[in-house]
Design a protein around this nucleic acid. Structure first.
Length: 498
RNA sequence: GCCCCCAUCGUCUAGUGGACUAGGACGCCGCCCUUUCAAGGCGAAAACAGGGGUUCGAAUCCCCUUGGGGGCACCA
């Protein structure tokens, strides 16, 4: 018997942007599909009509593609098992829900929110916290009663699954092993809502079956409903897929899941973005993010931390998923991203950083200076967004006030001398390249009896208007002789004036 | 409260009964380099949650406790 082909899916609901945790789930699915030569399917779970968000599907697809997680079947590209949007599959869900109804494996429930609330409270008081099953109000009524409610309340019902009341449901999870649920602890979950849309549980079971999903790889938070899902498959008479439950990513500070509601912060107090597009906008490289994400809750078992996607695909192994949930190691992402940026070719770096500079400086941005400064900033820019502040002096000159020109343990007169002598010396140097400017300037520092830091600090402020910049002589070279000298002269004038 | 899951340095992890005086990485700390900021080099500190078993032998297996997480919707 040949094993069924691997078919996995990522099934987000279009309620907002792609969450970093969702990205990891998608990534692991994608890796598994690519490793096994299987298919990765994108399915949109839009059965909650109240939470639909305009543009969400496009945003989700955009983020997935930015990460490089292309799908084989999906809403925009079709496939043999479509449609891939649940709201377009309503007839299917109805058919199968009604089938269950006919077999007595599901039942109509007319309970109002108030009835449910009351039943819940009674259960809570009388059964010491064991409230499972409180919702079974309409499960065991007689045919006559049923006919009467039907007549009175009409179509205002939901279809609930009639969970077995006794026994156990045993489920095998690929990362957790055997999980046993006591059926008596389970509830009769709603399968079909009164608006005619299915709940997640029904839609998932039906879709995964008909889309021939081999492995359901999803977040941990679904484990509690595993008994239901397993029983649902049995009720339908379908073989259940392999279950693979991934640990969730926790918030390092507040504890609990990583979420946008409680903005997470790392050990240094820096914010941890939660949405994939935020990483993109800050200048994290998708390949760095992908590498990083595979290192959370997963490991190849060796001492390596950095690897290409191709390598990850080749070596991916479901059995190496760690069942324990962990916190988001932001500092490690920053480190990894810095490594990836530093390893970029100059060409590639320029391509990636240009959009950030264009957004910040518009028409004042020009490519030539970026090209020239690139070798000196690649290791200082992480994430890419930092380039905007680091090389601002190339596009916008924001002169430092006079007092900022004066370094520690220096006074105005000394600073003025430095500015004057530097200007005089630099104006004689040709060509104006850092290898030509730096040695004589170092000699000057010594001749004047100062420390390099004192002199170069003053010059940096004068010439860039920044406290932090790329190396001074390289920066001046890129700026050009005329601009450099002019800024030195202006700085000296400001010092004299103020 | 009830049900389920999880548990190795601060953090991400390696470890599948003996090779563990527990390895790597990030971070932290110290030193070096240094014109700022990075990067880099060298070095150090740092963990098997606790208690019971099983075994000749336990980080590894079992139980309890504790701690953390998830779920208990006509949301997914």
């Amino acid at each position: 018997m040949t094993p069924a082909p691997v078919r996995v899916r990522f099934a987000p609901s279009p309620t907002g942007f792609l969450h970093i945790g969702g990205a990891r789930t998608a990534l692991l699915n994608w890796l598994f599909a690519r490793h096994s030569g299987g298919s990765f399917i994108l399915r949109i779970e839009d059965t909650d009509r109240n939470r639909l968000t305009a543009g969400a599907v496009e945003g989700l697809m955009d983020a997935l593609r930015w990460l490089g997680l292309e799908w084989d079947e999906g809403p925009d590209k079709g496939g043999p098992h479509g449609p891939y949007v649940q709201s377009e599959r309503k007839a299917l869900y109805h058919a199968w829900a009604n089938g269950l109804l006919e077999q007595g494996k599901a039942y109509k429930c007319w309970a109002t929110p108030e009835e449910l609330q009351r039943a819940r409270e009674i259960a809570q008081k009388s059964r010491g916290g064991k409230i499972a099953g409180y919702e079974r109000i309409y499960r065991f009524i007689s045919d006559a009663e049923r006919a009467q409610v039907q007549a009175e309340r009409g179509d205002a019902y939901v279809i609930r699954f009639a969970m077995p009341l006794e026994g156990e449901t045993v489920v095998h999870d690929r990362v957790r092993g055997k999980i046993v649920f006591d059926n008596a602890d389970q509830s009769d979950t709603v399968l079909l809502k009164s608006d005619g849309f299915p709940t997640y549980h029904l839609a998932m079971a039906v879709d995964d079956h008909f889309m021939q999903i081999s492995h359901v790889m999803r977040s941990d938070e679904w484990v509690p409903s595993l008994a239901l899902h397993q029983q649902l498959y049995e009720a339908f008479g379908w073989p259940a897929p392999e279950w693979v439950h991934l640990p969730v990513i926790l918030n390092p500070t507040g504890k609990g899941k990583l979420s946008k509601r409680k903005p997470p912060v790392d050990e240094k107090g820096n914010p941890i973005p939660v949405m994939v597009h935020e990483y993109r906008e800050l200048g994290y490289l998708p390949e760095a993010l992908v590498n990083f994400l595979t290192n959370i809750g997963y490991s190849f078992g060796d001492d390596r931390e950095v690897f290409t996607v191709e390598e990850t695909i080749g070596r991916f192994d479901l059995r190496r998923i760690n069942p324990a949930s962990g916190t988001f190691p932001m500092q490690k992402l920053i480190w990894l991203n810095g490594k990836y940026i530093a390893d970029l070719t100059d060409e590639d770096f320029i391509t990636r950083v240009t959009p950030f500079l264009q957004a910040a400086y518009g028409e004042r941005f020009e490519a030539a200076s970026l090209h020239a400064i690139t070798p000196f900033i690649k290791e200082r820019v992480n994430p890419l967004m930092q380039a905007v502040a680091l090389i601002k002096f190339l596009y916008v000159y924001d002169p430092s006030p006079a007092e900022e020109l004066i370094m520690k343990k220096m006074d105005a007169a000394q600073t003025s001398t430095i500015l004057e002598r530097s200007h005089a010396l630099l104006s004689t140097i040709e060509p104006f390249v850092h290898t030509a400017t730096e040695p004589p300037m170092r000699d000057l520092v010594e001749a004047l009896g100062f420390k390099p830091g004192q002199v170069f600090g003053t010059l940096r402020q004068a010439v860039t208007g920044q406290l932090v910049s790329p190396p001074l002589f390289e920066s001046m070279e890129v700026m050009g002789k005329a601009t450099s000298l002019q800024r030195l002269a202006e700085a000296q004038a400001r010092l004299a004036a103020g």
